[in-house]
Design a protein around this nucleic acid. Structure first.
Lengths: 342, 342
DNA sequence: CTGAAAGCGCTTACAG
DNA sequence: CTGAAAGCGCTTACAG
């Protein structure tokens, strides 16, 4: 009445031990009604006694559902993607889905479609793609789309279900904050040109300036990394023109802060600086950084929610306008911003 | 000669189109020898024409191999785990494995075994567990171990294959560097008591001090976050005793730097500070931080390598002493350390 | 409420 | 070099 050594127990083993057919075991496992309570109990204890675990491959073969969601993420030293991935993972698990992850070094269309291909080999049911660049999002929309795809964390994108933080609103918030402090205008250290987040933040910054009738200086593009912020910060310090600086992420803000400090420019007395992301370090920068916080976990949660809706939607009709969910950004005021110098 | 609409092509469809049996298609797909070149070409083009993709569940059912590796990771705002995960992912993909990831909020034995249970439902072939706490590693070693497990990124652990950075060596390196600079002793802001990394760094620090016959102050425990470094830094600044400070990670070092700065203690003139991790920000701290770099990607790579060896080892014998791989740490000298004040 | 039958889409011996 | 047969471990109608 026991299982041969060296082989994991299968449903038939449980059935034999419980004195029922394997179909009844299946019913118990799947929570079907129409199983006598007493039978169910017998099956349950047989399952426990044997340490039986259902063979997921066999199940997937017949149900045509693997329960696996493919995630294409990016290998960055950035704070956001890791947080987003974590939000995605928790939400997926809460709904009983598994996550298969591919992380990319380079953010290109080709790399993304290769990653999706790889995941397709594993029969994922749908995809979440962390798609921060315009080209990638557009490449995604072009794809034949055998399975649902949700883009996450870039900016808003056409023709694709998307979850993102309100980058435009965040950029607006940051700039507005500085203008309200009496600054004549706000200079901007932007992210790389093809990043949706960079574009959104520029748009918000520009809108706030235009609304206030303030001059709109050329945005200066960094590469998200501290060093680029340092370089541009040094340049701005030399020009001695800016009194307010909106930097598109906290890492570049850190570099800028350092360059300003080295040039003898006091923050916030001479120049106010605001960042974006609210990384854990930013509170302890010199000085503590005013910044814009993004709720990455919420983005992950909503992304999974959207995808699962798509996967489980019984109607199977593609809506004319894809779903879209925008998470608001939030201003975090600290020490690095102050009223404009007299 | 084509596939009914609404159904993905199966092997039989390819076979029909190529005019062979489905077994021959299988042979081509699996790269078996003994297929005529011409037959192979016909099959290949049928595959392409139909856009056929092998059903992974059916394959796994018969081969008893899913090609999936389960990863238990931690949801931290830390730099290391994300980098490690990325290293794991690249290595796994290079070897044709898939990664199913669970991220944990809390690092407890229970959470880890729950996560492994969840992954077992998906029939993972083995596990990589990022296990930074002693209790977790010990819990892992206790488990019945139906499938191979490799622990990664904690310290060295008994009874379990492990890949980690040489934390003891790193702590030694940091402390030695400060002693060589002429400091009488080195104070230590440590990580939380139950973390293996914290323990290893303390051990290395202690060894260097003892070797040099220097006094060994009590280590002061933070929680890895900047705020705890700030708190302890403020306390040390008040005591005015330390001239050299080894902080167990860069985030706490950032907090300490800030506390010292606020107290009017100059770094490195009055106090030298060294961190651990070499996060991208540390180069732009005030002042740029001397620190100890860990090659997280290498840890991930070796972890996967070890696990795959275990999975593919034909002998199937468990060695008496589990494999163990230690990645060296590396000193990165910047501005925050200097000779002891006269 | 429960069981006997069929079949999901592959791979693996076994013939030839 | 290639095909007919069996079987992996489940779920899903279909009977009863």
């Amino acid at each position: 009445m026991s299982v041969p050594v060296g082989r994991s127990p299968v449903m038939a083993d449980v059935a034999r031990l419980a004195g029922v057919s394997h179909q009844t075991v299946s019913r118990v496992l799947n929570g079907h009604p129409n199983v006598r309570a007493e039978t169910q109990a017998r099956v349950q204890s047989a399952i426990e006694e044997l340490g039986y675990r259902r063979n997921s491959s066999a199940r997937a073969l017949v149900t045509r559902r693997t329960g696996v969601i493919g995630v294409v993420a990016f290998d960055t030293t950035h704070y956001g993607p890791a947080q987003t991935l974590s939000g995605i993972e928790h939400a997926a698990r809460a709904d009983g889905y598994f996550l298969s992850v591919v992380t990319l070094q380079t953010v290109t269309r080709e790399a993304v479609s290769e990653a999706m291909d790889y995941l397709a080999q594993q029969s994922v049911e749908g995809y979440i793609v962390i798609a921060p660049k315009r080209a990638v999002v557009e490449g995604l929309a072009d794809q034949p789309a055998e399975r649902p795809v949700v883009a996450v964390e870039g900016g808003e994108a056409p023709d694709l279900p998307v979850v993102c933080v309100d980058q435009v609103g965040g950029g607006y918030l940051a700039t507005r904050h500085l203008l309200d402090l009496g600054h004549r205008t706000v200079h901007h250290i932007a992210g790389p040109g093809d990043w949706l987040e960079a574009e959104g933040r520029i748009a918000g910054w520009r809108r706030a300036l235009e609304e206030a009738g303030a001059p709109v200086p050329d945005p200066l593009h960094g590469d998200w990394r501290p060093r680029s912020g340092y370089r541009i910060g040094a340049q701005l310090a030399e020009e001695r023109e800016a009194t307010a600086l909106f930097v598109a992420n906290d890492q570049m803000a850190l570099g800028a802060l350092r360059a300003l400090g080295e040039a003898g420019v006091r923050v916030p007395d001479d120049v106010s600086v605001i960042g974006f992301d609210d990384i854990p370090e930013s509170e302890f920068f010199t000085p503590p950084l005013t910044t814009v916080a993004q709720d990455f976990s919420e983005v992950g949660r909503r992304g999974i929610g959207l995808l699962i809706d798509l996967l489980e939607d019984p109607t199977d009709t593609v809506p004319m306008t894809p779903a879209r969910s925008v998470v608001p950004a939030r201003l975090v005021t600290r020490v690095s911003t102050a009223p404009a110098p007299a």
